[in-house]
Design a protein around this nucleic acid. Structure first.
Lengths: 234, 234
DNA sequence: TTGGATAATAAGTGTAGACATAAAATTGAA
DNA sequence: TTCAATTTTATGTCTACACTTATTATCCAA
């Protein structure tokens, strides 16, 4: 039953190329035929092949260089993508009820270490906030945050008793740069108290620094309750 | 000085659209003009505008739905991308000398918890490895790994004294699925000994499970020396 | 032999137009 | 009034072609 072959989409081509990489037709470090030749083989156009290969390169399977051609990467630089969700969404997605509470709020001159980190002039004013996020009334995250008053003056007037600073910021400040780091740390007395655990217990700490163009906006430390796991699948 | 406008590239258009989102011309939740109209405005083609918007959607700034149109996302689902490097590369990139050592190697029937995690039949054989990774002779990572013998029989013959199992696997097994999770845990006596720290200290733990199609390949637990930070910028 | 100009090549990008498809909006019948 | 069928529309994708640009390979002269 030979019926006229439906044209291959760029998805089909991606799939086929990936299979050929994975089954050894095109072993690591080898070069693929060029786009023109592939589009012939697939009875497709160079544009379609281009999109397929471009996306595979984007995903870390191929390396492409002009004139040199397209090469299969030996060790695909697999990259994990973590969505950075709002705490509320993270909690609700897990099927738990979210509750937020503002623990402390004060305006202070930036401590030296913070000035260093955010490149502030000495004693620039910052809004310091401490917040708790609960999942089904169990502590989920203890958040300590500093917001640079000069960059976001509106924040001084904002009321953070009902809405968390992260949600507040995300809704009105178009963040341009972001640095995110994760580490394990030991709960001190304060953290332990808020997370209802014992001082000295390991907690997962996410630290997030954001800028608006060159101006520092905020630094946040988010301590997660013991047992927290950040997970992703590829 | 009116010179004939060079045509806008899809990059230019991305930039312009991003600026309009960030300066409030197109506030969160609002809809952009449709592609045809935008291509008029930019004196470009729909194809080019399409690529710009598609990539911005990919990056989490826009949401696109057929017929509905293209909407600015209120809280851009910013996503962090972590490259998942080989330990060796991670160490060398930090400018340190990398050293690897195999600590233990044995073939055992899979313990119950592992069978559950990897969906193995009871007592299926696994290769159990313990390895150390050093940066400038200081402990960097303690790796505990199980490799499913039925899925990767070659692994039983492999010599892991010179090359780590991760590098070995990456070079010959085209992993198809991967689950990665991060958490903070307490160093037990063994971990503490290898990482040259004290039992009870918090350590950063990355756990990685991989499959080849549906077949489970390996589970790895990587304990990082105290002070380790996983960082990314957007 | 070497070094620099030049040609050749493969990917990168843009234009123009067509058809496909999902989903919202509308219409019509029960 | 409500639900199902139909129309409309914005994005999704493909074709065909042309031009651009980075980079390698080649060739020739010093």
């Amino acid at each position: 039953m030979t019926r006229p072959q439906a044209p291959l989409s760029y998805r089909d081509i991606k799939q086929i190329v990936l299979e050929r990489i994975q089954n050894g037709t095109w072993p690591p470090d080898s070069f693929l035929p060029n786009e023109a030749e592939l589009s012939d083989q697939f009875s497709s156009t160079r544009t379609t092949v281009n999109r397929a290969l471009r996306e595979l390169a984007e995903e870390g399977y191929l390396e492409r260089r002009r004139k040199a051609g397209t090469r299969v990467l030996a060790a695909p630089v697999r990259q994990a993508r973590f969505a950075i969700p709002l705490v509320r969404e993270e909690v609700e997605q897990a099927g738990a009820a979210y509750r937020y509470a503002l623990v402390a709020r004060r305006v202070i001159p930036a401590p030296t270490w913070l000035s260093g980190r955010l490149d502030l002039t000495p004693n620039q004013r910052v809004l310091h906030l401490e917040c708790m996020h609960y999942a089904d009334n169990a502590p989920f995250q203890y958040e300590v945050r500093w917001i640079v008053a000069d960059t976001i003056p509106e924040a001084l007037k904002a009321d953070f008793t009902d809405i968390g600073p992260n949600e507040w910021l995300v809704q009105r400040v178009p963040l341009t740069n972001l640095e995110l780091s994760f580490t394990a740390t030991k709960a001190d007395a304060t953290i332990a108290q808020f997370l209802e655990t014992t001082a000295g217990e390991p907690v997962f700490l996410a630290e997030r620094t954001t800028w608006l163009k060159a101006a520092p906006v905020t630094l946040a430390r988010m301590y997660f309750a013991p047992g927290y796991r950040m997970t992703t699948r590829i």
